[in-house]
Write a protein that binds this DNA or RNA. Structure first.
Lengths: 339, 339
DNA sequence: ATGAAAGCGCTAACAC
DNA sequence: GTGTTAGCGCTTTCAT
């Protein structure tokens, strides 16, 4: 006998009434509702989401596709999503989609095709037209975090503008020997993040009439920043400031600087992008991009679409998260020491 | 019409045969099987796991309960689990169970009660007798990572022994002024990890006939290690070696050391526990505890139980992951400089 | 080796 | 307001 039948019997009502009482949908007399909820509590009844999904089509589950778990920005977005989802009674199913792994195909063709979710959040995943089409054909809403994606609602920062902002901050302090350490252009992340941040840097330098020949490529990670930092700063004609394409790269570079006996920020200003919680510790200036809130916002966007699935789809938009210079600014004018 | 009915019609067989052909269970003539799989491929058929679960009770989904996503050890375990699960065609549903948040109750009483999974992996979560009982009553296998849990299979490292090993390594190098930086005893993590690692330290110091009064408590994180590092190393009578209760604390301490102009490892040896991938960069000696493999192993254990659910339950065991001194040893004898 | 029919646990029409 | 009935899409006896 189905579980809800037990509840119904115990409360002396029909399954239908029990269902209505428990789900809050449809008319149920208050005393009846009470008897049912009590009966449910007594047996410890929890509805089988499978059975419910089968008939309603709603799964109370959201799929998240993400390329990394163990990278600060992504982990943070994930925590934001998870918390927001939990609040709404949703489960989160995680698909760790390594950039160009052979699993990518399987995830789209098999895992996602199972439609175990009411919607999908793609974090930092640039989907091909084919992939978005496939997702759309499932008839489930999709939102993206990280960059514009044709046909779906997305949020993210303006990478070019952010990079320009960071560079301009250094310029404003009087730095002229500025170097950019960024991800390798040959191994772009999705949404060409490496390229966009480089572009912003170049734009700012050109606008200031400065040569922009100080561009160093490395892996977009802490060890990558470290490695590049050693290269950049080992040279006696080293720059007075570094704009790193991510906080992780920036921190790696700072570690390298200290390794070489260079004081940060007294002898070298470093600025990154992310608003990393460790920035203070490393004396790092960073631009705040609120990864946690990006996760929360993505959930809100998705929920709006989940609820309004029968409405006309609104024009897909790309919402830009405002990026601001974090309070913990510790960059200095060149040659300046203590604050 | 149900999707499998479409496949069946296209292949000219009954739903039952189509199901058998697709699932591989039951007798199907080879040519028939072929016709069915082709038909399925043609329509792009993927079985609805909801409907299947409803009748089989199998969900092809595993729930993971974990206190942090954004901490290196946990993120790494998670990636290991996710990969192993994906290989087996399983989905992973994540429950981010913050230590003592009010959500904890909700997760056990509501989310987990929904039984959307064939099993649960609890990572670094010490469950109360009540909680394990509740989980058991769902009739789904559970395995734990991090410490022994009564009644279920678990894996983890021997925290006391590992801490002793780390301390002994420093003693063997000739250090006598050794300090322990660990998590606050008042805010234990689950499984009393802080306490156990402290115990191992004290045991080794006592065995060596040394006073063990150098114990500093802080938050078990990178900033925590930094803060404690400043305290410990600011004192002119500073130690020659630090045993940190985790790599994150160790790295924080090293950052503090460099901030204070102390060279690591030339002037200060630091040892941690985790086998953190960033250890090299920080010149950190660390004990390898293979977090990724712990995730993989947990999945293997769980799968064994999922498959053999009708067998007699084997006696729950706690498997100790061997911990070894990572190759990247850079600790030094006191007062020693370059290698 | 294949098909017909029952039913997993629930919700949604539709009657009353 | 409440009960009756008919499925949701699949797997699984049980016949054949």
């Amino acid at each position: 006998m189905s579980a809800i039948a037990d509840v119904a019997k115990l409360a002396g009502v029909s399954k239908a009434t029990a269902s209505r009482a428990l789900s809050g949908k449809g008319y149920v007399a208050e005393p009846t509702r009470l008897r049912v909820t009590e009966a449910a509590a007594q047996i410890g009844y929890v509805a089988s989401p499978n059975a419910a999904s089968l008939v309603t089509g709603q799964t109370k589950n959201v799929g998240v596709v993400i390329p990394f778990i163990n990278r600060w920005f992504f982990a943070e977005v994930l925590e934001g999503i998870e918390e927001a989802l939990l609040d709404r009674g949703y489960d989160m199913t995680l698909y760790n989609l390594s950039a160009d792994s052979p699993d990518r195909g399987r995830i789209f063709e098999f895992f996602l095709a199972r439609k175990r979710f009411d919607g999908v959040i793609a974090v930092g995943v640039e989907m091909s037209a084919d992939e978005t089409a496939r997702l759309h054909s499932l008839g489930k809403p999709v939102v993206g975090v990280g960059g514009p994606l044709p046909g779906i609602h997305t949020i993210g920062i303006d990478d070019v503008a952010t990079a320009r902002l960071a560079t301009e901050h250094l310029l404003r302090l009087g730095h002229t020997a500025i170097v950019h350490i960024g991800g390798r252009q040959a191994e772009q992340m999705d949404f060409a993040v490496h390229g966009k941040r480089l572009t912003g840097f170049l734009e700012a330098m050109h606008a200031a009439g400065l040569p922009a020949d100080g561009v160093f490529e490395t892996e977009m990670s802490l060890p990558g920043g470290y490695e590049a930092g050693l290269r950049v700063l080992g040279d006696p004609r080293r720059p007075t400031a570094v704009f790193a394409a991510s906080d992780e790269v920036a921190i790696g570079a700072i570690i390298a600087a200290r390794q070489l006996g260079i004081l940060v920020p007294a002898e070298l200003s470093v600025i990154g992008i992310d608003g990393h919680e460790y920035a203070d510790m490393f004396r790092l200036t960073t631009l705040e991009q609120h990864p946690r809130s990006q996760g929360t916002l993505a959930v809100e966007l998705l929920m709006a679409e989940v609820g309004a699935s029968d409405q006309l789809p609104t024009e897909p938009s790309h919402t830009l998260i405002p990026v601001d210079l974090a309070m913990r600014v510790s960059t200095r004018a060149p040659g300046t020491s203590a604050s």
